[in-house]
């Protein structure tokens, strides 16, 4: 056996071993979603359902009083999709402005970005709710989407750091060629940011998909609930909770984010193929 194949075998054996630790809880959730309700907690360690069945999926999908999970998924897709779009557009623009254009005031603007990153969500709930009430935005998707189009601090900071890793000669030379800032951003910076933009898209989608506190507070009508809120509406510790249905719908809710990840990640690992970065 050549040294190269041996290396490969060790590499994959290692990666597989860790993979098992990574995937165990997800497997557990999956298996619980096929279990009878009395099996879930009485036989926690067993990953193989004794009487596998689809009832949990059927019962869970029914949702509440005729509003099925089809509605909740649709809402989640609208919210998370638009949120992602907004985040990417605005964050790359703002990050470019902060990372590349020297103008008075950008230090202060950058400081507001970091400050916002540090303000805990728990104390923002009430003031934000009052704000959105004044705007008449309660019980609409707007509080969950519009702010994303105005940039998220995490994403701005992240994209900034990546832009600052791009050699400056690249846009400087374009500048001399007479290209304006926007053309430079669009034609030179953006193509080089493919990995980070993809990363941002994955995060933005997942966070928005999973966000619970926001939609819980801003949205009142169940027909506008996203999946995250609908999932919580299953459980009441003082009454009968259909845990099988909870795990079934949790499993389904995992699929879109996983698909997004699998689909997008190839853009990360491809890296920047633009050659001649260092002309």
């Amino acid at each position: 056996m050549s040294k190269k194949t041996l290396n490969s075998i060790i590499y994959y054996a290692f990666v597989t071993l860790i993979a098992f630790f990574m995937v165990y809880p997800a497997l557990w959730m999956l298996s619980s979603s096929f279990k009878q309700h009395w099996e879930i907690f009485s036989d926690v360690l067993n990953l193989i359902p004794k009487e596998p069945n689809f009832n949990n999926y059927k019962e869970g999908w029914q949702g509440f009083g005729g509003i099925t999970f089809a509605t909740f998924f649709k809402n989640s897709f609208i919210i998370a999709g638009l949120n992602t779009l907004g985040t990417i557009i605005s964050s790359t623009l703002v990050a470019y402005g902060l990372a590349r254009i020297p103008f008075p005031g950008r230090r202060i603007i950058f400081m507001t970005v970091i400050l916002t990153l540090m303000l805990p969500m728990q104390v923002q709930i009430v003031p934000r709710y009052i704000l959105f009430t004044q705007l008449g935005w309660i019980n609409t998707f707007r509080p969950l989407i519009v702010p994303a189009f105005l940039g998220g601090p995490f994403f701005i900071f992240m994209v900034m750091q990546f832009i600052r890793g791009i050699p400056k000669e690249l846009d400087e030379s374009a500048f001399i060629d007479g290209a304006d800032r926007f053309r430079i951003f669009y034609h030179i910076i953006l193509p080089n940011l493919k990995p980070v933009v993809t990363t941002a898209a994955i995060f933005a989608f997942y966070w928005s998909w999973n966000d619970f506190m926001g939609p819980l507070v801003y949205i009142n009508s169940p027909e506008k609930y996203p999946v995250s809120v609908a999932l919580r509406a299953f459980s009441d510790p003082s009454a009968v909770t259909n845990w099988g249905a909870v795990f079934a719908m949790s499993t389904l809710s995992l699929i879109p984010v996983l698909v997004i990840f699998v689909f997008f990640q190839k853009y990360i690992v491809q890296g920047v193929t633009t050659s001649g970065l260092r002309g």
């Binding site: 703002v94 402005g97 104390v123 702010p147 189009f149 105005l150 940039g151």
Partner: peptide, 21 residues
């Protein structure tokens, strides 16, 4: 250009963040 590029954030900060802050 600097203020133009960062305007989304500036608007967002003034509209949605400064009040809760």
């Amino acid at each position: 250009m600097g203020y133009l590029f960062t305007s989304p954030w500036i608007i967002g900060f003034l509209a949605f963040i400064i009040f809760p802050l």
